[in-house]
Amino acid sequence: MILLARVLLIPILILLLAGRQSMAGELPEGVAVGDAAPNFVVKNIDGRNVGLSSFQDVEGVILIFTCNHCPYSKLYEDRIIALHKEFASKGWPVLAVNPNDPAVEPEDSFENMQKRAKEKEFPFPYAMDETQVVAKAYGARRTPHVFLLKKEKAGFRVAYIGAIDDNARDAKAVSTRYTANAIEAIRAGSPVEPAFTKAIGCTIKWREE
């Protein structure tokens, strides 16, 4: 983490992130609900680049930072697939991005991502944030971490940040589907409430210097 602080304090990054830092000064805070969503390009498991501009005819994008190794990501794998199946046809597809450095967590390598996506037949792109700039720009702190990005004329805007639902361990015991409810609210033109939630998850495996 000390190393991480050093990495994040590189002045260029601070400039890129418009100086918004967390209280501890270690992790970038990233975006907040209501902010314009920074565009990015990452490499999908099929070798092609994917980014927000790849999504033209959509109402929004369900950006989820997730990965192979994290037990909480695994708990949510089937629910992420279900989210895509439920909402892609309504104009809200999933874009899954793995922010972890495979040197720190080999299970999250590009090859292992390809393998896992094939096993689970992911119906959405699963891309690698090789430079970790996307995770930093958005302020992703854990996996899984959801950012709902609503499409507007000028680009995308952050409409919700947080958890998928309120019970990671037991999908059957879920009482509030935070992400699904937020999409429904956006589509209905109602305010998103809550627009920010928290969940337990794995730390992002930042590159060590």
């Binding site: 990671a168 037991d170 015991a173 928290k198």
Partner: peptide
């Protein structure tokens, strides 16, 4: 179970 309901009670700066 519902982490969102108690993470802030531990500390507001905690992402989870």
């Amino acid at each position: 179970p519902d982490a969102n309901s108690w993470i802030d009670a531990i500390d507001e700066s905690w992402s989870g």
